[in-house]
């Protein structure tokens, strides 16, 4: 993931209980996700430190319980503020 991608926002939406093509982005906006099946866990697990915003509390609990290595942000503005300091790619390097 390069730093240019920090502006890329993937907006997931609807009932994602069955496998569908997944939109990729530096930030995943889950505010319009109704439900998320476990099929997506492997995809998220392969993207450590993936930034996520907008998940409903119930959805966030589900994903946290699964132990997925996600970075949770309250809003897109928060992600952008965080990006000013340390970019996602830099952050990933720190954890390698």
């Amino acid at each position: 993931m390069n730093d240019e991608a920090t502006t890329t926002i993937a907006r997931w939406q609807g009932d994602m209980l069955w496998p569908v093509p997944i939109a990729e982005g530096a930030v995943i906006d889950m505010s319009a996700v109704e439900a998320l099946g476990s099929w997506v866990y492997a995809w998220l697990r392969n993207r450590p430190r993936q930034a996520v915003v907008g998940a409903a509390p119930e959805l966030r609990r589900q994903l946290q319980r699964a132990g997925l290595p996600l970075l949770w942000y309250g809003s897109l503005a928060e992600v952008q503020l965080a990006a000013v300091g340390v970019t996602p790619s830099e952050r990933a390097m720190l954890w390698e």
Binding site: G37, S38, W39, Y41, Q62
Partner: peptide, 13 residues
Amino acid sequence: DDGARDRRAVIAD
């Protein structure tokens, strides 16, 4: 595999 274990955990929850 992990996928099956994930599914098992969600079903159990």
